[in-house]
Design a protein around this nucleic acid. Structure first.
Length: 208
DNA sequence: CGCCAGGGCCATA
DNA sequence: TATGGCCATGGC
């Protein structure tokens, strides 16, 4: 079923090439800023950096200034702490993705989960979209899709993640594209309507 | 005006 | 383990 969903979405939307960011570090920052927050607000916060967004900059800037910059993204006090924390983690690898990738996916995931402000989804987003490692990302859109298609309603994060990873080839490009497709599809269609007329998944919806 | 958005932390039972 | 309160802005 998941394979079919992927095929339908991919055929309809084509290659999306996520994540919308200029650098791996910007992916990390975006992943934290978008926690329970509309992406449009994240864009405002990112724009406030005025092109100065970099690990050393975040490392040295004061919490007060950082809070002002990211204010539009909401939850700015905690996210200030989180950004400092993820940057401190990245410093262990000299702010280098190449260096970080010398460690295993499992090791890095455990490290990320130990960072304050980094939960399962944020960790997987960073692993997949910043470090290019095959860790499937489950988010609110993913859960909503599976619910809408009556596939599952009760599975927890790791269970959902395993569901996808067992059903699909362990491939970074595929994980990247699939999650991007789910987000794209979710943003394009009303989340509450059970019937999606113009949705590429209509074929599946009508089987319910 | 109320609802919600690409979560996660923490206290409590 | 599993709920619930909390965090905050901006679009609709």
């Amino acid at each position: 079923m998941l394979t079919k969903i992927y095929a339908l979405l991919s055929k309809h939307y084509g290659d999306l090439n996520w994540w919308p960011a200029k650098s791996p570090y910007e992916v990390m920052v975006g992943a934290i800023l978008t926690q329970n927050t509309a992406w449009t607000n994240v864009e405002k916060a990112l724009a406030n950096f005025g092109g100065k967004l970099s690990p050393p900059y975040i490392a040295k800037i004061s919490g007060e200034k950082l809070s002002e910059i990211i204010r539009p993204a909401g939850f700015f006090r905690q996210k200030t702490v989180y950004l400092k924390a993820i940057t401190k983690w990245f410093a262990k690898y000299n702010y280098s993705v190449k260096t970080a990738r010398k460690k295993s996916l499992e090791f890095l995931r455990a490290e990320l989960l130990a960072v304050k402000g980094v939960g399962a989804e944020t960790a997987d987003s960073i692993l997949l979209y910043a470090l290019n490692l095959p860790s499937f990302v489950v988010d609110a859109y993913t859960k909503r899709l599976l619910t809408r298609l009556n596939i599952t309603t009760t599975l927890k994060y790791d269970e959902l993640k395993n569901l996808f990873e067992k059903a699909l080839p362990r491939d970074v490009k595929l994980y990247n594209q699939f999650h991007a497709l789910i987000v794209m599809n979710a943003k394009e269609h009303c989340r509450k309507k059970p019937v999606c007329v113009k949705c590429p998944l209509t074929v599946i919806c009508l089987q319910q």
